[in-house]
Amino acid sequence: MASDASSHRAADDRYEKLGDHRRAGDSGLRLPAFSFGLWQKFGTDRSYATQREIVLHAFDLGITHFDNANRYGPPPRAAEKFFGEVLRRDLAPYRDELVLSTKAGNPLGPSPYLKGASRKSLLASLDHSLRDLGTDHVDIFYSHSPDLATPLEETVGALVTAVGSGKARYAGISNYTTERSHEAAELLRRAGVPLLVHQPRYSIFDRRPERDGLLDLAAADGFGLVVYSPLAQGLLTDKYLDGVIPPDARAHDSAFLSPDAIDDTYRERARALDEIARLRGQSLAQLALQWVLRRPEVTSALISASSTWQLDHNIKALDFPPLTDGELALIDRHGIHGTGARP
């Protein structure tokens, strides 16, 4: 555990490394091309010192948006507690430079109040998150998933209350269908709290935002997209190209990636994409990140890292020339929607 005194001085050139921030939809808020997600690698099963080093390095690289949720760990809320320690000990002097987000709505436990998007569940969870993070507000508060058992008006009303109370600066949604996203955006607009961002899964192997019209809706309704899993849980890296699953790979214990996904069909497609990347002088991961960021509707891509090297490597995706029409056509040929999807 770090000492109580801050030992971190942020890099003076941190705003020179990621280029201009991107405006989130029609709002005035700008986010970096890459945001840092604390989804799966910031629980109590990981080294605090390593986690801290990675987060502080991300900030030094110009990543100002840190994405959390009450469910992230393991166990639930562990990631928020971890970030709260880093904020208190190291990043407190830079709080006004940070965009902190959290979410509520996915199950935390058996209680009916520890799940769903009711007013009670969302607002109670937000209060708990603020205590864990050690801050009086988050910048973005999300409804983590749609709750069909709760009227959408109630869920939206809770987001409006969160913003109106000053406990959140902006409202967001995540994992909503296109139709429900539009309904939420309309309700929020009428309440005077425009929808800032939607957080969907999006990658070369998961093209639902293209197929179901979410990209078009974002442009029409004026909200940004902060996309998660742009590397498809590691399938769009070189980790599995040789057919061997490393002992520490996520495929062994993830609810979102099965060893069965690492089959001949996946390897054939991933190797073809890797060859496209190699011809461009970049890695498959860098190609995949550049691919999601090519869309103007995408405000930011969420990335995480197991090391500072991995973080440095991934953000270099911004250094390569734009993808050509020919390269995009080749990517479409081999980047088949549903590749590696868990049944």
Score class of each variant (00 low, 15 high):
184 A>P: 01
159 L>F: 00
249 A>I: 05
246 P>T: 12
80 E>G: 02
124 A>L: 07
39 W>L: 10
90 D>A: 13
301 A>P: 01
340 G>L: 04
278 R>T: 13
269 R>E: 13
117 A>P: 00
252 H>S: 11
189 R>C: 04
61 L>G: 01
240 Y>K: 13
248 D>W: 11
164 G>S: 11
176 Y>M: 02
131 R>H: 13
274 D>V: 04
337 H>P: 05
196 L>W: 00
72 Y>V: 01
94 Y>N: 14
165 S>C: 06
336 I>G: 06
194 P>S: 06
263 D>K: 12
169 R>N: 06
326 G>K: 01
71 R>I: 10
309 W>A: 14
326 G>D: 11
2 A>K: 10
2 A>I: 10
90 D>Y: 05
128 H>L: 15
332 D>G: 12
331 I>D: 09
245 I>D: 09
37 G>R: 02
5 A>N: 14
271 R>I: 13
130 L>A: 05
212 D>W: 06
235 L>T: 09
29 L>I: 15
17 K>I: 10
312 D>F: 07
114 L>A: 14
266 Y>S: 11
292 V>Y: 09
266 Y>N: 09
40 Q>S: 11
230 P>Q: 04
31 L>Y: 08
331 I>Y: 07
262 I>D: 06
27 S>M: 10
226 V>W: 00
188 L>Y: 02
326 G>F: 04
291 W>T: 08
181 S>C: 05
212 D>P: 03
110 P>K: 12
330 L>G: 11
290 Q>M: 09
189 R>P: 02
2 A>Q: 13
37 G>Q: 04
264 D>A: 14
318 L>Q: 08
108 L>R: 02
148 L>I: 14
67 D>V: 00
269 R>P: 12
156 V>T: 03
249 A>Y: 07
129 S>R: 01
254 S>A: 11
153 E>D: 14
325 D>Q: 12
190 R>Q: 15
99 V>Q: 06
254 S>H: 10
335 G>Y: 05
141 F>H: 04
189 R>K: 13
275 E>P: 02
75 P>E: 13
186 E>A: 14
232 A>T: 08
66 F>Q: 01
97 E>F: 06
166 G>P: 07
335 G>S: 10
285 A>W: 07
173 I>T: 00
298 V>I: 12
247 P>C: 01
272 A>V: 03
144 H>I: 00
124 A>W: 04
28 G>N: 12
311 L>S: 11
191 A>H: 07
238 D>S: 13
185 A>M: 02
223 F>H: 08
137 H>A: 12
4 D>H: 15
8 H>A: 08
103 K>H: 00
148 L>V: 14
328 L>N: 15
183 E>F: 08
220 A>E: 15
104 A>W: 00
249 A>S: 13
103 K>N: 00
67 D>G: 00
37 G>L: 03
19 G>K: 09
322 P>R: 14
250 R>W: 08
129 S>M: 04
